[in-house]
Design a protein around this nucleic acid. Structure first.
Lengths: 154, 154
DNA sequence: TGGGCGATGTGATATTGTAACTTCGGCACT
DNA sequence: AGTGCCGAAGTTACAATATCACATCGCCCA
């Protein structure tokens, strides 16, 4: 799972949830039961999940109906806090595996199975930022995604 | 408007429409009045336009109601034929200024004014494809977009 | 005790995207 | 001319995604 000699702060399961909690509380935000549920649900998917997917999963987990807009609120917070990343070309979200580090991530999304692989390549993303800058553009959020077919589905 | 010594096949107005027509007919597809209207409308926007924006513009231009799903059908065809490109992070479309050439384009989308600037950088997009390939992924459609603030809005 | 405030609940609605089926119009063949 | 085919476009319905406005709850604290 490790890419390109990049081995810091990669979390799973409880450790990931704990890292997320620390990250959020470190920014002065609360780590509530609802937020924990949403994060756990998001992290439990093996592919990008829509807000509605998450709403349904959380509803099942908690045994009561959670509306999508509550999930959106929390996802927006997560994205702003780098706990989650929005996959634009899939209208969906994934949990960030290393919430403490800022990266412009690159996603490889399989059109066949729907799985998304996350890679970091600071040279590439830096190049994109630089190209934007050269065009007189102040880049705040690069979106680099590749649609195609993953190795398993090839 | 020209970027990086890239000066081929850049069209505007009637010339662009003509290039689009040739491209489409060259692929064995028809260039109908409806498709021409949709293309003209799309090309007339100075920023990415949603299918509904286009449906409304075409409806006004033709004096009768055109449903969004008709526009979607045509936009899908345009995208498949490289006459238009979908801006994933904006759920919108732009006309391709040089429909004859295949590029993995890069869009700089201003969060303030909504304008999108199109740049080509084959080194960058090639790097993205290569990175995907190294990860065992068969890239069919890279999506490289940068959200931020344009020079005019800075 | 009650006022402020952030988080969440709730209902409504807007926007974006698809599906299924019908109708239209040209074209080839008879 | 009549007939059948086929792609384009029309029409209706619906699904999926996203936002808005406002009510409520719990907590801190003045």
């Amino acid at each position: 799972m490790l890419m390109g000699g990049h081995d810091h702060h990669l979390h799973r399961g409880d450790a990931l949830r704990e890292a997320a909690r620390e990250r959020l509380t470190g920014k002065g935000e609360q780590w509530t039961a609802m937020r924990e549920s949403v994060f756990a649900s998001l992290a439990g998917f093996d592919r990008p999940a829509s807000a509605y997917d998450i709403a349904e999963a959380v509803s099942t987990a908690l045994g009561r109906r959670i509306a999508a807009n509550s999930v959106y609120r929390i996802l927006d917070l997560f994205v702003a806090s780098n706990l989650a990343i929005r996959v634009e070309s899939a209208n969906a979200y994934v949990a960030n595996q290393h919430p403490g580090c800022l990266h412009d991530c690159i996603f490889l999304i399989c059109d066949t199975c729907g799985q998304a692989k996350h890679i970091d390549d600071d040279a590439l993303s830096g190049g994109v930022r630089e190209a934007a800058s050269k065009a007189g553009f102040e880049a705040s959020r690069p979106v680099i995604e590749v649609r195609g077919r993953c190795g398993d589905c090839a």
